[in-house]
Simulated assay, not measured.
Amino acid sequence: MLDQAKNIDEIKVRTDDMPSEMRLLLSDYPRDSWEAHPGFHEKTRHWLGAHQMFRRLANRVRLDAETYLDGKYELDYYGGRLAYYGNVLVGNLHGHHGWEDHSYFPELSKADARFDAGLAVLEQDHADLDKVLDHFTRTANRAIQLIQLDEAQVRDEVGKLHGNAEMIEAFLKRHLSDEEELAVPIILHHRLRG
């Protein structure tokens, strides 16, 4: 755990476009055509819906920290929201990424070797995001404990938490978009998940 905490400062959120080898089918299946494609099934819609939920939860956690830091939330109220939304975000992201790594990605890789070109990038994102989520969890737990023990230190801890929440949000923005733009064209091309 300490190694992960030290490495959090070394983690850089990818900001560049996904590699061209990950874009091979995207030109044939652009994002704005997905819903109308006959190969777009409910399972894919649910997967994309989970991604939207993660984006909203990360945004909520960041905005809640800002609202508390601006003095617009009472401490106990903020602590309850942090405990609830932070837990939902972290728990669901871990479960989702575990399912992708062990079930979904192998299915896509088996169907189309072109998926493998982007798989290493996505798996590294998952490993880096796990470190960021671990750091977030420890910081959130400390902030919640300080609400009961030392209110004066809570603001500093929530300030750290806010920076971590911004990192999670930036991570998800890039990662989820790349993941979707790699996976969905393969799903549509091979009529998977029907």
Rank of each mutant, 00 (worst) to 15 (best):
D3S: 13
D3I: 10
A5E: 13
A5T: 12
V13M: 08
D17A: 13
M18S: 10
P19N: 10
S20W: 01
S20Q: 08
E21N: 15
E21Y: 06
L25P: 00
S27F: 07
S27V: 10
S27T: 12
S27R: 09
D28C: 07
D32L: 10
D32A: 11
W34G: 01
W34A: 02
W34P: 00
W34L: 04
W34D: 01
A36V: 05
H37L: 04
H37D: 15
F40L: 02
H41F: 12
H41W: 09
H41T: 01
E42G: 04
K43M: 09
T44C: 10
W47A: 07
G49I: 07
A50P: 00
M53H: 07
M53T: 10
R55A: 12
L57V: 00
L57M: 09
A58D: 07
R60P: 02
R60C: 12
R60G: 06
R60N: 14
A65L: 03
A65E: 03
E66Q: 14
Y68A: 04
D70C: 05
G71E: 10
Y73F: 15
Y73C: 03
Y73K: 13
E74Q: 13
Y77S: 06
Y77D: 15
Y78N: 00
Y78S: 02
G79A: 15
G80W: 00
R81N: 09
R81F: 09
L82M: 14
A83I: 02
Y84G: 09
N87C: 04
N87T: 13
N87R: 03
V88S: 01
V90H: 01
V90Q: 05
G91F: 03
N92F: 00
H96C: 08
H97C: 04
W99E: 13
H102C: 06
H102Q: 12
S103L: 14
F105Q: 07
E107R: 13
L108I: 08
S109D: 08
K110V: 08
A113R: 09
F115K: 01
D116F: 01
A117L: 12
G118R: 01
L119W: 06
A120W: 07
V121A: 12
L122N: 07
E123T: 14
H126K: 08
A127C: 06
D128T: 10
K131S: 08
V132D: 02
L133V: 13
L133T: 08
L133H: 08
F136D: 01
R138V: 06
R138N: 10
A140N: 02
N141G: 04
Q145P: 02
Q145R: 14
L146P: 01
I147D: 01
Q148V: 07
L149I: 05
D150F: 05
E151A: 15
E151N: 11
V154F: 06
D156G: 14
V158F: 06
K160F: 11
G163H: 15
G163E: 15
N164Y: 12
E166W: 08
E166T: 11
E166R: 14
M167G: 03
M167Q: 13
E169I: 03
F171W: 05
H175S: 10
H175M: 09
E179K: 09
E180Y: 04
E181V: 04
E181D: 14
P185A: 04
R191E: 11
R191L: 06
R193L: 11
R193E: 05
G194M: 11
